[in-house]
Design a binder for these strands. Structure first.
Length: 560
RNA sequence: GCACCCGUAGCUCAGUGGAUAGAGCACUGGUCUUCGGAACCAGGUGUCGUACGUUCGAAUCGUACCGGGUGUACCA
């Protein structure tokens, strides 16, 4: 349609435009364009006159059942349901409906969900998992080759805190019993003890922490054994939870892997003059030319590596190993400043790869006075496993009395949790609320899953007569078909800005259209010709539900 | 102080230049021996934070201000 308009305008007015066609309020027609309004000004003509010329050309194509001019110069187009249906069939026959080749031949690295080893998986890590996974799927749907890398936080002070705290506050029995949750308690208790000690001007515990870090650095056997044990417990837990979330990564190169490489890179930058060593021994990369008055610290004064050190090495490693066109970091907005510095440094050392910080807002909790505040361990975090358990419990309660498999319960619970993260723009802060985090009605994952399950049931129960439906008019299906035809554009837009909420909002609209159709049309009572036509359309709706939800990491249950 | 994000219905949020700004939740009523009611239909709320500007046209773009959030080199 856009192409036709473009041609007409080129022919009549000899100007190049990219006309936009939108879906107006149904009372106006099926499609609408305001292109006459846009080009009237530069042409020095009356918009309605321009609209007249364009619309008479549109009428000549014979593709529209009605062409109307409205208001200041909108052109409203109505197309017969039959023609729209034919168009849908054509698009499906091309294969991979909804996907495109925008990124073909290009490689992206997606860095996610990158949790810290020290603490149990909390809802704080929900968004990097959801958003990172959706980014991967969206990029793949548009032709990219995607490499996912779980950048584990397995280096630094936490290890010392663990050992010193474990010796003081815990035991092997407790560790055996509660695993990572015991490690989490130890971590929190030790952090608190360190704070109290510092306030009392003491340093005994803090010294112990540093001592253990040094021991690990020097390969002390006891330290190495603690490191192995704690990392094993923590990593098992991370894998277990990621498994429940149905997410995975291709690689797991943690910070510990990059720390020694980072130190080498620091030396290289020092000799090349990019980095500067301060009198206290710390090393910085000045970024004044990028508008930062805060330099990036890449080595502590005691010579130890820190975040930027390992990230520097990570950037170099990924360049050598994968030579990506794009690197996506799925990390919260709190680190926006840090990443802008990191990317500036990357540019300074000659890395040309597109570095993209996939930001998302924090998860808030409601205070008793009604105000919102970022969820923190101080206020009490919600654990990921607890959230999953409660969601499954709720889904199970709703399906009680029916024979629903455990697998389906999990798909519903996960669908509810994930979808709630995709309702809003990812930059929006999320309000964590036990009542809405896994909503099962209205704008929710299960609402869409339910619409899909209904279709699957129909397709399963009603045999397609397979008769020719060349005379069928598709009037009843028109709204659904028009909605289906929007899908490729939605994927294109969502992928280019990595905004999965656009897919989520679209799928909800499609599900609503589908449910309305379901209320009004009884396929079981249709003639053979109608059945064949309608079941063909339903197959396509189910396809879009399946593929669209898959972009969000959500599965369609077999029953619910 | 500076930087970034946000401000749309009672609440949670869609809507990045077009027609009368939309959903969910909550509230009220209706549909109901159904291809599965986790559904459908009906009922109503808005100084789109404020002001000025750009434009034929602004929730959307620009500037300033107000309010909230997040950061601001030896944590990650």
């Amino acid at each position: 349609m856009e192409k036709i308009l473009k041609q007409i305008i080129k022919q009549k007015y000899d100007i190049e435009v990219d006309p936009k066609v939108s879906r107006p309020d149904p009372q106006f027609g099926d499609y609408a364009t305001n292109v006459a309004l846009q080009i009237a000004k530069p042409l020095g003509k009356n918009p309605r006159e321009v609209a007249e010329v364009i619309s008479s050309e549109l009428e000549k194509t014979g593709q529209f059942s009605k062409v109307e001019i409205a208001g200041p110069g909108f052109i409203n187009l109505t197309i017969s349901a039959k023609n729209i249906a034919n168009h849908l069939f054509e698009e499906f026959n091309k294969g991979d409906f909804g996907e495109n080749q925008d990124g073909v031949g290009k490689i992206a690295v997606v860095d996610y969900p990158s949790p810290n080893m020290a603490k149990p998986y909390s809802v704080g890590h929900l968004r990097p998992g959801n958003q990172g996974w959706a980014a991967k799927k969206l990029l793949e749907a548009t032709g990219w080759k995607v490499i996912t890398d779980n950048h584990l936080g397995d280096y630094g002070a936490p290890f010392g805190i663990w050992v010193a705290g474990f010796k003081r506050f815990s035991s092997y029995d407790a560790l055996e019993k509660d695993g990572v949750y015991e490690l989490g308690r130890v971590y929190i208790a030790t952090k608190k003890a360190l704070k109290d000690e510092a306030e009392a001007n003491g340093s005994e515990l803090a010294d112990e922490v540093q001592e253990w870090l040094l021991k690990l650095e020097n390969k002390d056997p006891e330290a190495v054994e603690f490191s192995r044990l704690f990392n094993e417990i923590s990593l098992n837990h991370i894998h277990n939870v990621m498994g429940r979330l149905k997410i995975s990564t291709d690689y797991e190169y943690g910070e510990a892997f990059f720390a020694p490489k980072g130190k080498e890179e620091v030396q290289k930058l020092l000799s090349s003059g990019v980095a500067v060593q301060n009198d206290d021994g710390s090393v910085i990369v000045p970024l004044d030319e990028y508008g930062f008055n805060t330099p990036l610290l890449i080595q502590k004064s005691n010579g130890a590596a820190l975040y930027a050190t390992t990230d520097l090495a990570t950037i170099k490693f990924r360049e050598q190993e994968w030579n990506p066109d794009k690197v996506v970091y799925a990390v919260g907005m709190e680190q926006q400043f840090y990443f802008s510095q990191l990317f500036a440094m990357a540019d300074k050392i000659g890395i040309k790869t597109d570095m993209y910080h996939l930001t998302f807002g924090v998860i808030d909790q409601l205070n008793e006075d009604g105000t919102r505040e970022k969820m923190s361990s101080r206020k009490g975090v919600v654990l990921m496993e607890e959230l999953l358990d409660k969601a499954e419990e709720k889904a199970r309660k709703l399906t009680s009395g029916r024979d629903i498999s455990d697998d389906d319960i999990k798909k519903i619970a996960l669908g509810a949790i994930k979808f709630s993260d995709f309702i809003a723009d990812r930059r929006t802060n999320i309000l964590f609320d036990w009542n809405t985090i896994f909503a099962l009605t209205g704008m929710s994952g299960p609402y869409i899953q339910y619409a899909a399950v209904r279709i699957a049931k129909i397709l399963n129960d009603i045999k397609n007569p397979g008769v020719d439906y060349i005379k069928y008019d598709f009037e009843s299906e028109k709204a659904v078909i028009l909605k289906l035809l929007e899908y490729p554009e939605v994927v294109k837009n969502a992928a280019s800005s990595l905004e999965p909420h656009k897919v989520a909002n679209y799928l909800y609209d499609l599900a609503r259209e589908m449910n309305r159709y379901y209320e009004n049309v009884r396929i079981a009572e249709s003639s053979d010709e109608e059945k064949s036509a309608r079941l063909d359309i339903l197959t396509k709706v189910l396809y879009v539900f399946d593929r669209g939800l898959d972009l969000l990491g959500i599965e369609v249950p077999s029953q619910m």
